[in-house]
C-alpha cells in the first residue's frame, strides 16, 4: 500500500460506507423504477441493478496480485 492510499482509507465513515451506500441507493432506485414505469424505468433498472455486477467485474479485473 502506498502512503497516499493508506491516508485516504485510514478509516473515516465515508470511505468505509460511502461506496456500498451509493450502490445501495442506486439498487433501490432501480428496483422501484421498473415497478413504476415500463419504458424508461425499465432501462434505468437495468443500469442501476447492473452496477453491482459491473463493479465486481471492474474490481476483479484490476485486483492486486501477489
Amino acid at each position: 500500500m502506498t502512503a497516499a492510499r493508506k491516508l485516504r482509507s485510514s478509516g473515516n465513515w465515508w470511505t468505509v460506507y460511502g461506496g456500498p451506500l451509493l450502490i445501495g441507493v442506486l439498487s433501490v432506485a432501480g428496483l422501484i423504477s421498473a415497478l413504476l414505469s415500463e419504458g424508461p424505468g425499465r432501462y434505468f433498472s437495468w443500469l442501476a441493478l447492473g452496477a453491482p455486477v459491473a463493479l465486481t467485474v471492474w474490481f476483479f479485473a484490476r485486483r492486486k496480485r501477489g
Binding site: 482509507s9 470511505t15 468505509v16 461506496g19 463493479l55 471492474w58 476483479f60 485486483r63
Partner: peptide, 15 residues
Amino acid sequence: YWPFTRRLSFGTLRD
C-alpha cells in the same frame, strides 16, 4: 464491515 474494512479502500481484492 467497519472494523474489518476501515483500513482497506473500497473494492480491495487481495490474493
